[in-house]
């Protein structure tokens, strides 16, 4: 209730309701040309945005004495790659010792906007299935296991897909692909032919969109977008 009342538009509507009757709201056309004083004042008040707190945090007692004050309030931007994260500093780097001494990087979540440390584990993760941190790793596979994996994959590559084998043996997808590769016929049958058939049905718009998407990915990898 308070929130609605604090909005100037709502307050204005309340005032209208209390002060005017429903019939008097239909004004003649000559009076609709000019904006009522109440509306203009309301708009002016809405546009009167207070300055950012960083401008007000330092009331600059020095400026009263005639000295100049520096206000540093840069717009938000992507972080620079030349700011090396604490973890990437070598052991011999003096910045590491200085940071450890001052405990500047205690949580290491020192973004420009966040002053309070963020609980990292509370942040949602994305692409968990592809992350090396969350994929299960079975580092105790024996030679027999690998041979069994090869046999299964070559016997029925459709049923024993890479993902299925990785789940079955508890290793990463990459490891399965390192151990065994299905033949060229299977690759063509699964990856090339269906796509080629689908590509035939594409119209000019879809083709262009797909090409754009590919080009965008190449630009992304070169750091251009």
């Amino acid at each position: 209730m308070e929130a609605t009342l604090s909005r100037p538009a709502a307050r204005c509507c309340c005032l209208l309701k209390t002060t005017t009757t429903s019939t008097s709201r239909l004004l003649p056309s000559s009076q609709q040309q000019s904006r009522p004083k109440s509306t203009r004042a309301r708009h002016k008040a809405a546009l009167n945005v207070p300055p950012h707190p960083s401008f007000l945090s330092n009331p600059s007692p020095s400026s009263a004495n005639g000295a100049t004050t520096l206000i540093f309030n840069p717009p938000s931007s992507a972080p620079s790659v030349f700011q090396t994260p604490f973890k990437f500093l070598p052991k011999s780097d003096p910045r590491r010792r200085a940071a450890l001494g001052q405990k500047l990087f205690a949580s290491s979540v020192t973004t420009n906007f966040a002053t309070a440390p963020v609980d990292v584990n509370a942040l949602p993760t994305i692409f968990d299935d592809r992350s090396p941190a969350t994929t299960p790793k079975n580092h105790s596979l024996t030679k027999e296991d690998v041979e069994e994996m090869r046999r299964l994959r070559l016997a029925d590559p459709v049923k024993n897909s890479v993902l299925n084998l990785a789940r079955q043996f508890g290793c990463s997808v990459m490891f399965v692909m390192m151990c065994v590769q299905a033949g060229k016929e299977h690759r063509d049958k699964v990856h090339v032919e269906p796509h080629a058939a689908a590509r035939e049905r594409w119209g000019p718009k879809k083709r262009e969109a797909k090409e754009d998407r590919k080009r965008r990915m190449e630009m992304l990898m070169r750091g251009e977008i």
Binding site: P79, P85, F86, K87, F88, S108, V120, L220
Partner: peptide, 24 residues
């Protein structure tokens, strides 16, 4: 990596943003 942030990136899709963060 653990509690340490290694990189940050923004993009129009989650995949692009993640790749940009990794490249950063």
């Amino acid at each position: 990596s653990g509690n340490d942030k290694l990189g940050e990136g923004s993009g129009a899709t989650l995949e692009h943003a993640r790749l940009k963060a990794a490249m950063h």
